[in-house]
Design a protein around this nucleic acid. Structure first.
Lengths: 347, 347
DNA sequence: GCTCGATGTGTTATCGATATCATACACGAA
DNA sequence: TTCGTGTATGATATCGATAACACATCGAGC
């Protein structure tokens, strides 16, 4: 016989165990005093009935929902956000939280509505990921509601809000240094139009590092595309190859662009690093390419862990002021930069 | 002055608008009769106070939570599941639902606990994605609780449970046919150990199609690896290349394996399709490879939409019996199969 | 023997939204 | 005029878990 779907309430368990509902809560939540004997009887009743406490009622009464809302760009834009989301998910799970992800499309999306929904679902915190278009006043209103907010890799600087940022400048600088160290002077840069601080930093870190070492980044070697898209990487590389005196090394400010560039090189029968040296950025796809290319890696799991830590710390200590943590990237070297130095000097 | 975080309740709005709470609900939910005048006053009060209805209370009183739980393997195992998850998310959002994703690791993970959590959160449905290890009895208990269940690409066949399956047999068959049509007879197969129906189908579809056309799949040309991992694809390809009379065409039962294989070919200075023809499966990474390779594509968005449809239909019509929908894959041809036919005959 | 604190259990108001039930007015038909 | 029906609004029990409060028992210490 199919049991008709009637939810089993704490009342039912109480009746079965011949105790009051208060005792059931105590057993379930491990609070207050319960004798070993009673505890066992109650547990038996719970198991028999297949009782599962109703979290809605619990949350309504004041206990936390254990849900953290995230506002992030669509995941199919860039594998970087996929990995970041997965890392965040792992991190919050460690502390018993779940993620409720809200996607903001570039084009439309009613951010106010999304935030309101998170509020209505009583999330314990809201994480903003990447550069989505959420007006500052709206974020302020969340803070005023007493909901902890953490910004992950977002330009905005709001009073009393915690932030995790990445040292993008330094990341690009590492790539530049690698090229310089191996004797390259004719160097290309492929990035995305400088619309946010992040793009700006990646560009400047690269340009300035070259410049400081006496290698100005030539305009004809600089390609800024509209989006982080494969075909843009392809076209950018074609543009760089098209000129006489093509660069011997090219830095791409995202792996997705590098993947496109690699396809272009394949079509041109050019090999990496024999014919062209390559370094990517974010290290999301680099290891799966043919060949696997060097890439500036962001410690994604660390970023996620830091984000959660900031939230937990604020919750625990009731901290009021905003805190900013800057994460340092590192270069994952897969030997895709050719050594152009005539003689290797011993230092 | 910072407003102290005190939640605004329906009561507060009622007081402000000088009406009863009942009227507020009516305005918010658009139910029952409300005069235009009152509606306006109430709306004003809502806006003034920044009132957001508490969904916990609402759910507790019997309204749906609008949340659908999913049980899926970890997303970093395979980009296929990432895309599937994103597609599902889009599909449920169209109908105002949200996804709460529960990850089951291969190694451990307390599936009972995960399901119980979904129940405690009063999800409107549960979708099972891929071949995770959830015992049949547990799923039956969900069904008994009256929660709609849809299985997406899962082998299990449970009474009264809706399912969406993929015709994996046919997918592989398409790849085989392509090879045959272009005159290949020395053909390789790289797959994963046949632990589930899916792996079995992919293998058999390929093998049988070749056989029916008089081309037996040789044992030395068949490599079954342990997992869907890049390095396994690399090693498998190396094994195939190592023998004299290496295959002229290789089918890989997942793009991630193909990506590894491609790296191997790169190292061996072999080009696709000039030296080796290649077809992948699932079309998740194929388009980003160098070169982009042909791959058997699964209509992921359609699978997601179908899953949601089955749930909605059951909900709407109160359907009781289980329904199975089979999805057909198709080959995305990127010209990575070389034409070996000496003369092209006109048909 | 009495008091006090530790232990163990029960009773019930409460969280916030909903829907049922009750009430009341207005207008047209009988 | 009266009745019925459509429109409009209010009062309140209810969903299920929690915790404050009350009460009761027991043993140790005086």
């Amino acid at each position: 016989m199919v049991s008709i779907a009637r939810t089993i309430r704490i009342q039912d368990v109480a009746k079965r165990a011949n105790v009051s509902v208060a005792t059931i809560t105590r057993v379930v939540n491990g609070s207050g005093y319960v004798s070993a004997r009673t505890r066992q009887v109650v547990q038996q009743a719970i198991d028999d009935l297949g009782y599962v406490p109703n979290r809605m009622a619990s949350a309504l009464k004041g206990k936390s929902t254990g849900v953290i809302g995230t506002i992030n760009p669509s995941l199919d834009i860039n594998p970087y956000f996929v990995q970041l989301s997965a890392a965040l998910d792992r991190s919050v799970r460690e502390y018993g939280f779940r993620i409720l992800s809200m996607v903001v499309n570039r084009e439309q999306s009613d951010e106010v509505g999304l935030i309101h929904e998170l509020v209505s679902r009583m999330v314990d915190a809201i994480f903003f990921i990447g550069s989505t278009a959420v007006p500052e006043a709206l974020i302020q209103s969340i803070v005023d509601r007493g909901i902890p907010v953490v910004m992950l890799e977002r330009p905005l600087d709001i009073r009393d809000v915690d932030r995790v940022t990445v040292n993008a400048w330094e990341g690009s600088a590492m790539a530049a240094q690698k090229f310089l160290a191996f004797g390259h002077t004719n160097i290309g840069y492929v990035g995305v139009r400088l619309r946010h601080q992040v793009e700006e930093d990646r560009y400047e870190g690269f340009r300035q590092t070259l410049l400081r070492n006496g290698v100005p980044l030539e305009a004809r070697n600089t390609v800024l595309v509209e989006e982080y898209e494969l075909t843009h990487g392809y076209n950018a590389m074609r543009q760089l190859l098209g000129q006489n005196g093509r660069p011997t090394a090219v830095f791409l400010s995202s792996d997705i662009l590098a993947a496109g560039a690699l396809q272009c090189l394949y079509d041109a029968h050019l090999r990496v690093p024999d014919d062209v040296s390559l370094i990517g950025y974010d290290d999301t796809m680099a290891s799966t390419m043919s060949p696997p290319i060097s890439s500036v890696a962001l410690p994604i799991q660390e970023m996620a862990a830091t984000t959660v830590d900031l939230f937990l710390e604020r919750k625990r200590e009731g901290r009021k002021a905003g805190k900013v943590v800057r994460i340092e990237p590192h270069l994952v070297d897969r030997d895709t930069v050719k050594d152009l130095r005539a003689t290797v000097e011993r230092t």
